[in-house]
């Protein structure tokens, strides 16, 4: 037998007594029964209120225990933003450094190649004995010059290639930073789930109007993007079907 049934039975008995006493004209007894009824009503009200207060207290307490939420919002998220900005800076610097090295190297290679083509043509003339002594002396001088500049340019090229190699050192650091941010995102996710459970209300999905052509950034492997085509060939096929 539950507490409620006991209370209900008592209330019922008191109510019956009230009717009997009133019929008999015992006003004192009737008033007493009425008082008891009112008191019984108050008791159940207080019980409900007590229950609510306890639930409210528990909810507040568990929220306070999980102070990680405020930590996340106040400290970790801004921190992650800084870290990710740093990743952008590092990758940008690496790309710039690499491209500078390549832009410096390309003319060096082109110069070496151009002079080599020219010398080879002259060298072939010499092999075919189409060259006079004066021309040969010029050729010998050109070859000497070429060997000298090739040596310098090769050293320069080697330094630039090393630079390209070293510019890739960002990968290790950005990798570590991004991994930390992933851990943070998982943490935030877990806390949000707790928060939703705590509020114990059905979360109504916001019906945000979806713009089909809104820019969404690169397609990421493992992340489903509705309606994305699979690459340049698929793009070409689609455009072809549109009459391109």
């Amino acid at each position: 037998m539950t507490v409620e049934t006991v209370i209900n039975d008592q209330v019922l008995a008191t109510a019956e007594r009230l009717i009997v006493e009133m019929r008999c004209g015992n006003e004192d007894q009737a008033a007493k029964a009425l008082d008891e009824l009112v008191r019984a009503r108050e008791v159940s009200l207080f019980q409900e209120l007590g229950k609510l207060t306890r639930e409210f207290h528990d909810a507040l307490a568990s929220f306070r225990v999980d102070s990680r939420v405020s930590d996340l919002a106040e400290k970790d998220i801004p921190d992650a933003r800084e870290r990710l900005n740093h990743v952008i800076t590092m990758t940008q610097n690496a790309a710039d450094r690499t491209m500078s090295a390549v832009e410096h190297s390309l003319p060096l290679v082109e110069d070496i190649a151009n002079v080599a083509v020219n010398l080879r043509a002259q060298w072939q003339r010499f092999q075919k004995r189409e060259m006079n002594a004066q021309e040969f002396r010029e050729l010998a001088k050109s070859i000497d010059l070429f060997l000298g500049t090739t040596e310098t340019k090769s050293a320069d090229l080697k330094a630039k290639l090393n630079d390209v190699l070293l510019a890739q050192d960002f990968q290790d650091l950005t990798g570590q930073i991004i991994k930390r941010v992933i851990t943070l995102v998982e943490d935030v996710e877990a806390n949000l789930v707790n928060l939703i459970k705590l509020s114990s209300q059905k979360v109504v999905p916001v019906n945000n109007h979806h713009d089909a052509i809104k820019a969404e950034g690169p397609v990421v492997p493992g992340v489903k993007t509705d309606g994305a085509v699979s690459g340049q060939d698929a793009v070409d096929d689609l455009l072809l079907s549109l009459g391109f």
């Binding site: 052509i213 820019a215 509705d226 340049q232 698929a234 793009v235 689609l238 549109l242």
Partner: peptide, 29 residues
């Protein structure tokens, strides 16, 4: 661009684009 949704490519075509390359791309493309 890195954008490669069907609707986007159609929208670009309708807007009068002359060519559409998705990133990452090659020099040959």
């Amino acid at each position: 661009t890195a954008e490669q949704k069907r609707e986007q490519i159609v929208a670009a075509a309708e807007a009068g684009v002359n060519g559409y390359i998705v990133k990452p791309f090659t020099a040959a493309t």
